[in-house]
């Protein structure tokens, strides 16, 4: 009697998904109330959170407004560009 050969399926090597940050940069044109409104519309943030992020953009010159998968980060950047906000994305290190 032969023992059955058991094949062990090798787990595929999962590539660790690197998160990306969506970053809004300050500019001298876009109004604070407008930037707050855009954050609420694009991300569904509360007034308080949207204002906090807007103030960070205003005082620090930039703010990380969202972090997550690259594809979704690109989608958000595209949305923010449509609203004419200076936006970029960076890999989280």
């Amino acid at each position: 009697m032969t023992s059955p050969i058991t094949k062990h399926k090798q787990k595929p090597k999962t590539q660790k998904t690197v998160p990306w940050s969506v970053i809004v940069l300050d500019d001298p044109v876009n109004l604070q109330a407008y930037v707050t409104m855009v954050f609420k519309k694009v991300f569904g943030y509360s007034q308080t959170k949207a204002e906090m992020l807007m103030m960070e953009v205003h005082t620090m010159g930039r703010s990380v407004v969202w972090t997550g998968a690259r594809e979704k980060a690109e989608f958000y950047v595209q949305q923010l560009h449509t609203w004419q906000l200076q936006t970029t994305m960076e890999k989280v290190v």
Binding site: L25, E74, V77, Q78, H81, T82, Q84, Q86, T87, T88, M89, E90
Partner: peptide, 24 residues
Amino acid sequence: YLAESLAGLMIEDSEWEEYVVPDL
């Protein structure tokens, strides 16, 4: 011009110029 200047903020391999700039 505006669409291209926004694209200039993007990372190089995003292909923003090709896929996003025309829509913007």
